[in-house]
Amino acid sequence: MRVPDITLPPIIASIASKLPATPPTLALVTALNQLVKRGVLPAEMELLAGKRFEVDVLDAGIKLRFAADEARFSVDQSTQAPDLRFAANLADLARMMLREEDPDTLFFNRKLVIEGDTELGLIVKNLLDSVDWSDTPLARFMAV
């Protein structure tokens, strides 16, 4: 299964940006916490503690803002600037998550914007890379 090469039409972004971002963010942090708890996501939480993150899905007009403490992830309701921001179109984010595409490749091609604390960006990227999906039901979705 390959992610098709599409960009969402601008109308989606203009609608989505008016919707509250909390539900998708909540889903994301719940999933992350589950993965940490089950030991699938080998997060060294002390490296992430106290940091704010933003995933900006450009063509969907959705910004997912979350934070981490020593033990878990939570929805970030604050208005403070994130320590780390990833921004890309939905298809490219999906490719990255499903390991069809290397984040560095997307970055070289300027399809992925990484802003803020560069070292934190590297920690997160390496964290995603080190998840062994073969132990999870998600394995069948992964490209590699």
């Binding site: 390991r99 069809e100 290397d102 560095d104 490749t105 990227k125 995603l128 890379d129 490209a143 590699v144």
Partner: peptide, 10 residues
């Protein structure tokens, strides 16, 4: 070694 599994695969 700093690149992702996707790179290694390809």
């Amino acid at each position: 070694r700093q690149r992702s599994p996707a790179y290694v695969a390809q």
